[in-house]
Amino acid sequence: MKVIFLKDVKGMGKKGEIKNVADGYANNFLFKQGLAIEATPANLKALE
């Protein structure tokens, strides 16, 4: 799943980066902790 990092995550990515991560990792950790959001077309447009 493609995500946009909202904060730096050690060993994974930096704020503003777009990366592919495992679905479970994104849903169970990154999204719940507020560290990333899904890289949807609307979210990608908002990032620009």
Rank of each mutant, 00 (worst) to 15 (best):
T40A: 04
G16F: 10
D23F: 15
K19H: 10
L6D: 00
K14H: 11
I18W: 04
F5Y: 06
L6V: 08
N43T: 06
K10H: 13
L30Q: 00
K2R: 14
A36M: 02
A22M: 11
G16P: 01
A26K: 05
F5E: 00
M12H: 12
L6I: 11
G11T: 04
L30A: 01
I37V: 12
K45M: 13
G24T: 14
P41E: 13
D23V: 15
K19P: 00
A22H: 14
K10N: 10
A46T: 10
V21L: 06
N28V: 08
L44P: 02
I18D: 02
N20F: 15
E38P: 12
L6T: 08
N20M: 15
I4F: 06
V3C: 02
N43Y: 05
G24V: 13
Y25Q: 07
K45R: 14
N43A: 11
K7T: 12
E48M: 12
L35R: 03
L44Y: 04
K10E: 13
G34F: 09
G11D: 09
Q33T: 10
L6S: 02
G13K: 00
T40M: 03
L35Y: 08
K14S: 10
I37C: 07
K15M: 10
V21I: 09
N28Y: 12
K32H: 08
Y25M: 11
E38A: 13
G16R: 03
G11A: 05
N28C: 15
K7G: 08
K45T: 08
L6C: 09
M1V: 12
A46P: 05
Q33F: 15
A42L: 09
K32Y: 08
N20S: 13
I4P: 00
L44D: 02
L30P: 00
A26D: 05
A39C: 09
I4K: 04
Q33K: 12
D8I: 04
G13F: 10
E17L: 04
V9R: 02
F29I: 11
F29W: 14
A22S: 14
A22I: 09
L6Y: 02
E48R: 12
I37L: 11
L30H: 00
Y25A: 08
N27Q: 15
K32C: 10
A42Q: 13
E17P: 00
G11V: 02
V9H: 03
L47P: 04
D8H: 08
L35I: 07
N28L: 13
A39W: 11
L6M: 09
M12K: 08
V9L: 06
N20Q: 13
I18C: 07
N27D: 07
A46L: 13
V9S: 01
L35E: 03
M1P: 05
G24H: 15
Q33N: 14
K45E: 11
N43V: 10
I4E: 01
G16I: 00
I4Y: 09
G34E: 08
D23E: 14
E48L: 13
G11W: 06
N43Q: 05
V9A: 03
K15Q: 09
G13I: 02
T40S: 10
K45W: 07
L44K: 05
V9W: 06
N28F: 12
A42G: 10
A42M: 09
T40K: 02
G16H: 08
M1K: 09
G16M: 06
F29V: 13
G34D: 04
V9G: 01
E38Q: 10
E17Q: 11
G34H: 11
V21K: 01
F31Q: 02
F31W: 03
I18N: 02
M12D: 04
D23H: 15
D8N: 13
N27H: 14
N28H: 14
A36R: 01
P41C: 11
I4A: 03
K19W: 12
I18G: 01
F5R: 00
Q33I: 09
A39E: 02
I4L: 10
E38Y: 06
I37Y: 04
M1D: 01
K10I: 12
L47N: 07
L35C: 05
V9E: 02
M12P: 00
L35V: 06
A39V: 06
L35S: 04
L47Y: 14
A22E: 14
E38N: 04
E48S: 12
K32D: 06
I37G: 01
A39Y: 11
V3E: 00
K45C: 13
K32G: 06
K15R: 12
N27Y: 15
K14F: 13
K2C: 15
G16N: 09
G13L: 01
A26L: 08
V3M: 02
N28W: 12
V21A: 02
I18T: 06
L35G: 02
E17V: 05
I18K: 02
K15T: 08
N27R: 15
E17S: 06
A36W: 02
E17H: 04
G24Y: 14
K7H: 12
G13W: 10
E17F: 04
L35N: 03
N20K: 12
L44I: 15
I18R: 03
V3I: 10
L44T: 06
K14R: 13
G34P: 01
A46M: 15
I4M: 08
L30K: 01
A46V: 11
K2G: 03
A42P: 05
K19V: 12
V21M: 06
Q33L: 15
L6N: 02
K32P: 13
A26E: 06
N27T: 13
L47F: 13
G34C: 13
L47V: 07
V21G: 01
N43K: 04
A42C: 12
F5W: 01
E17G: 04
K2L: 15
V9C: 06
D23M: 15
Y25S: 08
D8Y: 07
K2M: 14
G11H: 08
K15W: 06
A22T: 13
A46C: 14
M1E: 02
N28M: 13
K19I: 11
L47E: 07
F5G: 01
G34W: 06
D8S: 09
F5T: 00
F31D: 01
A26S: 05
T40E: 03
N20H: 14
K7E: 12
L35Q: 05
M1W: 07
V3R: 00
F29D: 05
T40F: 03
E38W: 07
K2A: 10
G34Q: 08
K7N: 07
G11I: 01
E48P: 07
F5P: 00
L6E: 01
V9Y: 04
F31L: 11
N20A: 13
F31V: 07
P41S: 10
I37S: 03
A36Y: 02
N28G: 12
K14I: 10
K2Y: 14
V3K: 00
D8T: 10
V3H: 00
N28E: 10
I37W: 05
G34I: 03
G11N: 07
L44A: 03
A36H: 00
A46R: 14
M12V: 15
I18V: 12
K19T: 07
E38M: 07
K19E: 04
Y25C: 10
E48K: 10
N43E: 05
G13A: 15
A26G: 05
V9M: 04
D23T: 15
V9I: 09
F31M: 06
N20L: 14
G34S: 07
E38T: 06
K15S: 07
K2W: 10
D23A: 15
I18A: 04
P41G: 09
M1S: 05
I4R: 02
M12T: 07
M12Y: 14
A36G: 03
G24W: 15
L35D: 04
G11Y: 10
P41V: 11
A26M: 08
Y25W: 10
L44G: 02
F5L: 09
F31E: 02
K19R: 12
N20Y: 15
F29R: 07
Q33R: 15
G13C: 06
T40P: 03
F31K: 05
V21P: 00
F31I: 12
K7Q: 13
N20R: 13
E17I: 03
D23N: 14
I37R: 05
K45Q: 12
E48H: 15
K7D: 08
K7A: 13
L35H: 03
K45A: 14
K45G: 08
K10V: 12
A22D: 14
F29Y: 12
T40W: 03
A26F: 13
L47D: 04
K2V: 08
A39T: 02
N28K: 12
A22C: 11
T40N: 08
G24S: 12
N27V: 15
N20W: 15
N20D: 13
L44R: 06
M12Q: 10
A22V: 10
I18P: 01
A39H: 05
K32M: 11
E38K: 08
K14V: 11
I18L: 08
G16V: 00
V3Q: 00
A22W: 10
M12I: 13
G24P: 11
V3A: 01
G24E: 14
N28S: 14
M1G: 03
N20P: 06
E38F: 05
D8K: 05
E48I: 13
K19C: 09
E48G: 12
L30I: 03
G13P: 00
A22G: 11
K2Q: 09
K19N: 03
G13N: 01
P41K: 09
F29K: 06
A36P: 00
A46N: 12
G24Q: 13
A42D: 13
T40D: 04
